[in-house]
Design a binder for these strands. Structure first.
Lengths: 383, 383
DNA sequence: TTGAAAGCGCTACCAT
DNA sequence: ATGGTAGCGCTTTCAA
C-alpha cells in the first residue's frame, strides 16, 4: 500500500496551492467550479484520504465522542460454564445484550443523529489509557468499573478539567464537581419493588445480592432497607459486604498504592461463590438481586439444586435487560431507561463541548417496575 | 473549561524540555526517576491530556480501527408501527440486536483484546464522509448499504489504495482487488435449507422474499434456485426484482449521476409493500425469506390476517439473530457466525495494517441450519 | 539523560 | 478566487 498522499501531492498534481485543495473540500462553493473539479479529480487519482489527525490538530476538536466501555468478558463470570462460549455460538441473551450494550446503543444512535462519530475504548488499565483516550475525543462518557483500582479513576478528576465527562450510574457521589452524571432513579425503583413484594406477596425475610461497592447497587440497597423500615420490617440480609478495595467506580483520588498490588477485584466471582453457597434449606421469602444478571445466575443455580422459582422462593432482578423478558421464569425487575441514558449522555457531551460551562449537570431518569413470573405475578408459560 | 494544556505548558512547569515530557510518558525508563516524577506531577497539576490528533500526526497511524455502520433506524421499517418506538421502551428483539449489532460486537471484542479502540461512523451520505472517516483510522470495516448510491461506494475503490478495507457480506463481487472480504457461506446454508424443506417437508412451491440488490440475498437466491433445480423443481417466485438503482453495496465505480437524484432507495419499504400485498388465498408451500427480519415481519403480517405459521404455510429466515430464537414461532433459519465475522475482520485489519500486502484476502465462514417452529419441526410451546 | 529543532498534514488568516 | 504561510501539539532524530 502506497504512502498516503497529502494535500501537497494533490495540490501539485492539480496545479494549485494546498489552501485551494483544502477549500475545494471544505468550502466547495468558494472555489471556481473548474478548479474544484481539477482538485477532486487529482485527489481521486491519487487515492487521497485526508488525515484526520492533521485536521483535528489544525482545527482543534474532532467531531468524536468517546465511550469508555469495559471488559465484557468478565461480566459472564457468574454464569454457568455453558453460557461462556468463547467464540461464536447461538445468540445467548444472558451474555448479550446487557445493560452496557443497551446504553451504548442509545449513545451511538444519538451520536449518529447528531452527526458525531463514536470512539469506543477499552477498559483502561492505567491512568495513561484514560488520558490517551480522552485526548482523542471532544467528550467522554464513562461506565463505572473496577477501574477504581490503581488510580485509574483518580485521573478522571484531572482529565475533567479539560474534557467534558459524563459518568453513568455513579449516583451518591459528591455532585459538586465538574462531572456530568446520568443515572436511573434507583431509589424510586427499589421502593416500588419492595412495596410490591411486601404488600402483594407478603414477603418479609429478604436477602439482597450484589456488591455494595457499586454505587448503583448501594443506592438500591439503601432504598430497599429504608422502604422495609418504613413498613417496620428488618433490613435485608446482604451476604456480600463492601470489598476491601476502593469502591467500584469510585473516582476520588484515594491512595493508589494501597490497591495497586491487589489482584483484579472480581465481584462476579464473589457473587458466584455466594450463589453457590446458598443454603437451600433456609431460604428467605425473596432474593432481591442488584441486577438481572445476578438474578438469572441465581435462578439457574437454584433450579439446578431443586429449588423452584417462584414456588419455593421469589427472585427479583434490576435493570430490565432483554434476558429478563425472554428467559423463563421472566423476571420481576425494575427497568432502567438504558437507551435514553445513552442518548442523554451524548446530548450533554455535545452541548457541553460548546458551552464549556464549569459545573456538572446531573440527570436522573425514571425507572419502572416490571412484573414477571419470578415473583409469581405471571404464570409460567414455557420452560 | 480551560484551554487544553500542551506539552509546552507541562515542560515549562516541570522545568524540562518538551522532548523530556514526551519521553516521560512514552519511555518512562529512559528518563531519570526524579525527572519523570516532576513531569508527571506537573501534568497532573495542569490536567494535561495529550492531544490524540497531534500524536497521530507525529507518529503516523492511530491505534484505531473503523467500523462503517449504517442507519439502523430504517432497518425497522418493515416492522409494524408498534415495534418502532422512537425512544426507549422495553427491550424488543425485533429491533436489537440485529445482524449488524452482533457483527459489531465481535469486532469490538477482538479490538479490545488486541489493544485497539474502535471508531464507529455513521452511514456515509457523501464520498467525503467516507474519506473523512477512513482518514481517522488504521483500517476500515464496511457493511453493505444503500450507500451504493450517489457514488459513495465508488470512493472506496480509491480509498482502499491507502487504507486497508474489509467488506462484510459482499460476496459475488470480483475478488481480484485490494479489498478484503469476510462473508458467510450463503451457498451452503441456502442449500441445506432447501434440502430440508424439500426432502423433509415436501415443499415444492416456494416464494423468495428479499431485495436481490443485496449481494448476500442474491447469493442465497441463486443457491436456492440451483438446489431446487437439482431436484427438478421450479425456481422460487421472487416478487421483488432488482431495484432500478445501483445495487445495494455495489462499490463499482458506476455512473454516479444516474442515481444521484434518486430518492433514498428503501428496500424495507418495498418488502413491506409486498408483505402487505401477499395473497392469503394463494399461499406457496413455503416463504423462504432472505433474512430473519423479513421472516419475522412476514409472520407478523400473516398472523394478523389469520394465516397461521407453520400450519398454513412454512416460513424460513436467514441469519440466526437473537429474535429468531426468542419470538414465537421460533424461526427455522440459517445461522451466520456473526461474532466471528466481526472478529475476523478486525484481525485482518490489524495484520494488514502492518504487512501492507497489496491484494485482498477473502474469508468465508461456515453457516449452520437451525430448525425451529416456523417450518413445523419444533412444536410451538408458547404464544 | 536531556535539549533543540525539524517535521507530521491540514486549516485559516492575510495578501493578492 | 487563489496563494503564501504560520501554526496546531506531539514525536523523534541528532547533539550536547
Amino acid at each position: 500500500m502506497a504512502r498516503r498522499p497529502t494535500v501537497y501531492d494533490v495540490a501539485k498534481l492539480a496545479g494549485v496551492s494546498t489552501a485551494t485543495v483544502s477549500f475545494a473540500f471544505r468550502r466547495p462553493d468558494e472555489v471556481r467550479d473548474s478548479t474544484r473539479e481539477a482538485v477532486l479529480q487529482a485527489a481521486r487519482e491519487l487515492g487521497y484520504v485526508p488525515s484526520g489527525a492533521a485536521r483535528g490538530l489544525a482545527r482543534g476538536g474532532t467531531g468524536v465522542l468517546g465511550l469508555q466501555s469495559f471488559d465484557l468478558l468478565t461480566e459472564s463470570d457468574i454464569l454457568s460454564p455453558e453460557a461462556q462460549h468463547p467464540n461464536d455460538g447461538p445468540p445467548d441473551p444472558r451474555v448479550f445484550p446487557l445493560y452496557v450494550d443497551e446504553v451504548q446503543r442509545g449513545f451511538e444512535l444519538e451520536c449518529r443523529q447528531r452527526g458525531r462519530s463514536v470512539h469506543i475504548s477499552n477498559d483502561p488499565r492505567t491512568p495513561q489509557d484514560v488520558t490517551d483516550h480522552a485526548g482523542r475525543v471532544d467528550g467522554l462518557a464513562v461506565f463505572p468499573s473496577r477501574a477504581g483500582l490503581s488510580g485509574v479513576a483518580g485521573v478522571l478528576e484531572s482529565v475533567v478539567r479539560t474534557v467534558p465527562i459524563v459518568l453513568f450510574s455513579m449516583g451518591g457521589v459528591s455532585a459538586d464537581d465538574a462531572f456530568h452524571r446520568v443515572q436511573a432513579d434507583n431509589d424510586g425503583g427499589a421502593r416500588a419493588l419492595i412495596a410490591h413484594l411486601v404488600d402483594h406477596h407478603d414477603a418479609r425475610r429478604l436477602t439482597f445480592l450484589g456488591d455494595l461497592a457499586a454505587p448503583d447497587y448501594q443506592e438500591r440497597f439503601t432504598a430497599i432497607t429504608d422502604e422495609l423500615a418504613t413498613r417496620g420490617l428488618a433490613p435485608p440480609a446482604a451476604p456480600l459486604t463492601t470489598s476491601p478495595h476502593t469502591a467500584t467506580g469510585d473516582h476520588t483520588a484515594t491512595d493508589d498504592t494501597a490497591s495497586e498490588g491487589l489482584p483484579a477485584a472480581n465481584d462476579a466471582a464473589d457473587i458466584a461463590a455466594i450463589i453457590t453457597d446458598i443454603s437451600v434449606t433456609d431460604l428467605p421469602d425473596a432474593f432481591v438481586c442488584a441486577s438481572d444478571q445476578i438474578a438469572i445466575a441465581l435462578i439457574e443455580q437454584l433450579t439446578r439444586r431443586g429449588v423452584s422459582v417462584p414456588a419455593d422462593v421469589i427472585v427479583t432482578g434490576f435493570d430490565g435487560i432483554l434476558a429478563s423478558r425472554v428467559l423463563h421464569p421472566t423476571l420481576t425487575t425494575v427497568r432502567q431507561p438504558m437507551a435514553d441514558m445513552g442518548r442523554t449522555a451524548a446530548r450533554i457531551l455535545i452541548e457541553e463541548a460548546e458551552k464549556r460551562s464549569g459545573s456538572g449537570r446531573t440527570v436522573i431518569l425514571p425507572t419502572a417496575l416490571v412484573l414477571g413470573e419470578s415473583c409469581g405475578c405471571e404464570s409460567i408459560t414455557a420452560a
